[in-house]
Every structure is written in C-alpha cells, then in structure tokens.
Design a binder for these strands. Sequence first.
DNA 1: GACCAAGCGGAGCACGTGCTCCGCTTGAAG
DNA 2: CTTCAAGCGGAGCACGTGCTCCGCTTGGTC
Lengths: 202, 202
Amino acid sequence: MTLADHPSPAPRPGRRADAERNRAVIIEAAGEVFAECGGGVDVREIARRSGVGMGTLYRHFPTKDELLATVLERQFNAWLTDAHQQAMATEDPWRALAGFFEQTLSTQARNRAVVESFTATGGPSDSCIQRCYSIIDELRTRCVDAGILRPGVTTEDLFLLSGSLSQAVLTTADSRPGQWRRLLRISLDGLSSRNTESLPEH
Amino acid sequence: MTLADHPSPAPRPGRRADAERNRAVIIEAAGEVFAECGGGVDVREIARRSGVGMGTLYRHFPTKDELLATVLERQFNAWLTDAHQQAMATEDPWRALAGFFEQTLSTQARNRAVVESFTATGGPSDSCIQRCYSIIDELRTRCVDAGILRPGVTTEDLFLLSGSLSQAVLTTADSRPGQWRRLLRISLDGLSSRNTESLPEH
DNA sequence: GACCAAGCGGAGCACGTGCTCCGCTTGAAG
DNA sequence: CTTCAAGCGGAGCACGTGCTCCGCTTGGTC
C-alpha cells in the first residue's frame, strides 16, 4: 500500500479545478523532495519538481513550514493507518509489536524529513503523536496481557526506542543498509519478559 | 576529569604570545557554544563569546568547518582518553562495557555538536573513529572471553548502538532527562549471552 | 624609546534562501 | 464570445550568515 492509495485529506470546494490540481501536484512533489533531501531543501527545488512557479506554491502554502507540516501530516497518517491495519491483522502479540517496528523503520528509512521531524523542535502534530501512542499502547497492552513483555516497559519507552532506531537507520543507510535490523533484534530481546529486572526510574 | 585537564594538542612555536592566548580562548569558547547550540551557530556568536574580532577568529581558523573539526577532535580525544582509562580500571568486563555506554551517553548528552557529528556527513575524523573502535573492540573482546556477550555481536553493532542512543538522549534531554537509561538497560540486556539466537546478517 | 612585522577588530561584501509583487493567463459563468 | 476574478510565473527583495579587507594596535627586538 502506497501513499497514493490514501484519500487526500483536504479537498477544497469552490476552488478552480487547475488550482486544485496544482495543490495536489505540489504536495506530491514536496513529499518526494522532503523525503530525499530532508526539510532543509531549497523551496525552489520543490517548485521546479512540481512544474509550478514560486507564486503558485506560496499561494497554496503561506510558508515553507506549513507546506512541510501538511506533507508530514499526510505521510504520518498514511503510515499510521497501514501500521494499525497490519497490527490488527497479526494474531500473535509479539509478532505484531515486532512487525510494527519493522514496518516503521523500513518506511522511515527512506524519508529523511520524517526522521528529522522527531529530532527537531515541534515534530509531527499532536494528533499524529497521539494516534501513534494509541497504536503502540494497544500493541503493548496485548503483549502485557500475554505475559511476554518485560514488566515496567512503558509506551513512551517504545516510542523513544522507535525514534532512536530511526536514527540508526539513517546513519547506516548508505554504508551498511540493514544493519539496523540487528539492533532491532537486540532491543526486542531486551524487551522480552525473560528479562525480569526492573528498569531504572526516570 | 574535565576538558581543561587535558593538554592542548597543538602548541605553535614562534607565534606571538597574545596570538597563542587568543587561539586557546577561541577553542575554549567555540567548544562551549558548539556544545550548547550545535554546529549551526552563527560564527559571530563564537567571536562574541571569545571576546575576539572576526578577523582574529578567521586568522586562526580559515573556515568555520576547520574550527568545528578542531574543537570536535579535541573533545573526542579527551572523552576517549577518559573512557579508556575508566574501562581499564574496571575489573568486571560487563560493568566496563556498561560503564562505557553510560559515560559516553551522559557526556554527549550535553554536547549537541558531538551528537550531530555522528549524523552529518563526515563526522569525527578517521583517527578518532579508529580510536573509538579500538576501545569498543577491547571491551567487546573482554566480554566475549568471559562468555557473557551474545554471540555474533560486532564492534560495529556496539558503535551504532551508541550513536542511536545518543539521539534518544538528545530528544528527551528537555522533557524527560534520564529516560535514555531505560533504553540503555533494555539494549544491554539484549546484548547478554543469555540471548542465544543469532542476529540477522546485514 | 624607536621600529615594524605580526596581529587585531569589525564594517561590509557575497551568496544562499525564504518570501513577495505584479503583470500576464485562463477557467468558467452568463 | 465576452468578461473578469481567480490563478499563475518568476524576477527580485530582505535577511541571515560565512568570510574578507584594511586601517589601527602591539609584542618583541635592538
């Protein structure tokens, strides 16, 4: 399932048809460019890739930040929807949790801007964070109920772990792609209930 | 042991005394500013903090990158020296490894530029990387000889883990400082030889 | 004390990048 | 077909930031 399969979230009635089309083209192109180059790219590059002038770009998105936010929101929601569906479809709680990390990391591996957004101030919007927390919490609860998750592990721990590993994915993307799977495996084993010693308080 | 306890690596004979003094002041100030603000700070801020003009700064360091490299090299070497001494002084191999991570992360937690340097292209100089690998490899070997490290764990795995956790330290530095210790604990438990299943190949 | 090369300060230049302005074009309503 | 507001393109402005230039100052030597 790719991004294009998800419905565009904000169709705007009353606008001229070409404007609507341009808006969609810009979001599409910006998504690609941000993913490849990170949030620091020159806006002209996005305009160029969209085949649209600067005026048009800034008519639709008053600032670069707003464009980035729109794109990230869209990509996050697509990813979260997929992740949720996949999690629901997996019977075994542990496989569901592991699969979530696997999917998250391999998706984000190809999207610089998304990884950056976790580091930078602000990051993704609150509603996305909230949604992400909900999914992780559901996965965590299922594992706890099955007695296979280490006691004391919080949703925040899992969220932070995901962000931390994302970074590992990025740093090894060029030199040793796939090495992150080893770290993931190590972390998951550390999360197993076979480890009974309590974790340090904050 | 702090940075000031380490000898300045490059005293330059034949230079005027005030120039030598200024050079030291600049390195000191730049170290603080880079640590607080990251590598993206305005050079003027470093000049201001040094109490020195732009001309003086650029006389000693022809580019900002060179200044940053000099500062990072110095800080890395100070950190590595401390880490090595501490590792040598710890009898128990596992405590030595855990202590290395603990020290690395709590040091880097207060130094944005260092963490960034692992992410950015280039990063620390090759000789630093090499030295760091040597230390980690020594720690790893001791653990392997004692039979307490999970089979198949490489020096690269441990290096990558360190960088990955550094990121976690940064992202939670403001909101939940100390949470990274929980992730570290989880990772270390996953590295224990009690986990016998082999890690995925690259 | 006199001399001067080495060193210094900071105004200002060059350039990259976010954003605007305005004359031209075009979808669509009548 | 006519009309025109909505939309478009891209030159160029504003500003932040790396770096330079040059007249002034000063440590060191005789």
